[in-house]
Nucleic acid binder design. Structure first.
Lengths: 114, 114
DNA sequence: CTAATTGTTCGACGCTGATTGAACATACTC
DNA sequence: GAGTATGTTCAATCAGCGTCGAACAATTAG
């Protein structure tokens, strides 16, 4: 029925996002208090938006765990995801997240033990 | 043997402190990603240094858990403790912690869902 | 159509962390 | 001295999180 030409056929259901404004401080801190996710965020911060697919990150975990970590970051308002074909691309929600938690991403991205 | 007149006879052994400089980012985030500890930090930030004893905080946990939370904050370089008589007083390590993790305490103390 | 790629979901496992109650240690008070 | 107040430590419990392997879904390539 040609609804609206299906914006973009997804990998599966479109990932459900949470805006940083709706994220509790403890949730944001907990999301970033993990070495794997920290690495994801840092690599993401060093890349252009929508440039990196989920599988393109250098982290020492399997696919299942990776998927879980991205879900956590999504729920914490840290990343946004968009499906392109069979790949899922990512973007760091810098401006939104920075307005909700000023300085937090800077701290994470620029910390010495990167 | 009059060593040095025992600086200050402690509740027990003097609490072992960790300087913020020796704290990993993930450890700092994890320490603050807890509602009880968040509350301790906030109340502490609103009080004068060495003014609050451990038992003077309004948190919904028993003494054992409280003691544990303070130990976590100590290990994360967030608080400093000093024994006075049978009481243990606290101080937020603002300057040191701010130098190591700029903006983090501000974020925690000034967050909306306080 | 078949096969390969990308990522999610499920069940299970192990580990860490928060909590409690009880026992203990120290210091103050009477 | 005995009794009280303040915290710590221990053992046990319980919930949650990170991880994996396997099964599944959707898309693309041949």
């Amino acid at each position: 029925m040609a609804e609206t030409a299906a914006t973009r056929p997804s990998h599966r259901a479109a990932p459900s996002h949470t805006h940083p404004d709706e994220v509790a401080l403890t949730a944001a801190l907990a999301a970033l208090a993990d070495p794997v996710r920290l690495r994801l965020v840092r690599e993401l911060a060093a890349s252009d938006e929508w440039e990196r697919t989920c599988g393109s990150f250098d982290v020492p975990v399997g696919k299942a765990a990776l998927s879980h970590h991205f879900a956590v970051l999504r729920d914490a308002g840290v990343v946004e995801q968009r499906d392109i074909g069979r790949k899922r691309t990512n973007r760091l929600r810098r401006p939104e997240f920075d307005r909700r938690f000023p300085g937090l991403l800077d701290l994470v991205v620029n910390d010495r033990d990167g």
